[in-house]
Design a binder for these strands. Structure first.
Lengths: 215, 215
DNA sequence: CCCGGAGATTTGTGATCACAGTCGGGCCAT
DNA sequence: ATGGCCCGACTGTGATCACAAATCTCCGGG
């Protein structure tokens, strides 16, 4: 038996850089199209170019960053078609994840979701796009963790990562005035054990984010 | 205007290594659990450790390789749960891709699919798991390219990549005697413009590969 | 015959360097 | 004043090296 339950006691340097950048990108703390340099990231995280390069290469592989023809790296500025496609992927994967989580969703989980949902409301109230995005993703991830499907969750997070900068920009543009009301539908469907209702609620919640672009 | 229409006139070294390894993994030319070393790959491709490391890091990010706690890298040996999960992802994404390709599937595409399908029969006849896997994926990719959904296709290919070594092992074990007959259903549904039938055929074709594991 | 441990080898990690290509800013000609 | 051009700084790429940890090998003891 392990004394220390922490799975990663000594994170390598490139992993620290990777996690840091990934979190900032996924939560929308970096604007779309913002350029990044290896040396800049290296000095920012106190490492040499090598770990910075590996972290960036990994993020490029996941679609979190785009590589220009000259090798320059920047956070992606998504076209409308790509946004629609990624939203469709979210709908596909997250509906499945929610459906698989439903049989395992006990009361403590639902309570936690409600708590997170009220946090989302606070973020909306203080007009904090980054905080909104972060707690919103926490809401979804908390539910999907119950699905016991790590490969699917990883795919969903990869999609979030690609959408991160763009969604933060859009959220910042369209001033929301309340938490997404489909979250309440999700919680209600979970309580009722209503699988078709849950699928519809998740799908609606995901595609709702797309609507803000069209308008 | 460019004289040379080739989009990638000077592939960087790490890209050559990445493409080579990715192809070998996806087509099942490397057995599950096979270890890889940076220096070995470097000498094999005639480059130093740096490009080899970037290529491997990228493949790890895509799930094509697993990284042990000590940093050792090897092709993954998937558990049954993970195989089921990846097959479910294939079903989700590829059904959607096929559905989106249907309106754009003209006669030339269907002819090409039939040609590829007969190639698959040849591979089965000569008991060539790698060739079978390669042509089978070519069949699916040819269809999905018509969906004009690059993000979804990339996701599907990532799943293929993760399943590559395992599927080759399973295919080699269970001696097939004919090409997957659901491919004929797919072609028939494309000809008839029958979307529900196409969705069912693709889903059946994907999940059929899973059955060979259960048996 | 099997198990364990000490030394040698192999392996990944991170830093540094040289080099070529790119991008930007300022200078000159018009 | 403005447009084009050139030079300089900057950036990514790939190679090499030092180092620590892990693995393997082989040998002796039980």
């Amino acid at each position: 038996m392990l004394i220390n339950p922490r799975p990663d006691p000594s994170p390598s340097a490139h992993d620290r850089v990777y996690r840091g950048l990934r979190s900032r990108i996924m939560h929308g703390e970096i604007a779309p199209g913002h350029p990044l340099t290896l040396r800049g990231i290296g000095t920012e995280y106190g490492v040499s170019m090598t770990p910075a390069r590996e972290a960036i290469r990994r993020l490029v592989a996941e679609g979190a960053l785009t590589l220009s023809a000259s090798g320059r790296v920047a956070t992606p500025d998504l076209s409308n078609e790509r946004i629609e496609e990624l939203a469709a992927l979210r709908a596909l994967i997250e509906v499945e994840l929610a459906s698989r989580a439903l049989p395992r969703a006990h009361l403590a989980l639902i309570d936690r979701l409600q708590t997170i949902n009220s946090s989302i409301g606070e973020m909306v109230a203080r007009h904090d796009p980054v905080g909104y995005l972060r707690t919103n993703l926490e809401f979804h991830r908390t539910l999907y963790l119950r699905a016991q499907a790590p490969a699917m969750l990883a795919m969903a997070e990869t999609v979030w990562l690609q959408l991160g900068p763009t969604m933060a920009k859009l959220y910042g543009r369209a001033q929301r005035r309340e938490a997404p009301h489909y979250h309440r539908h999700i919680i209600a469907a979970l309580k009722a054990g209503d699988e078709p209702g849950l699928r519809l609620a998740v799908r609606s919640d995901v595609t709702q984010g797309l609507r803000m672009l069209v308008s």
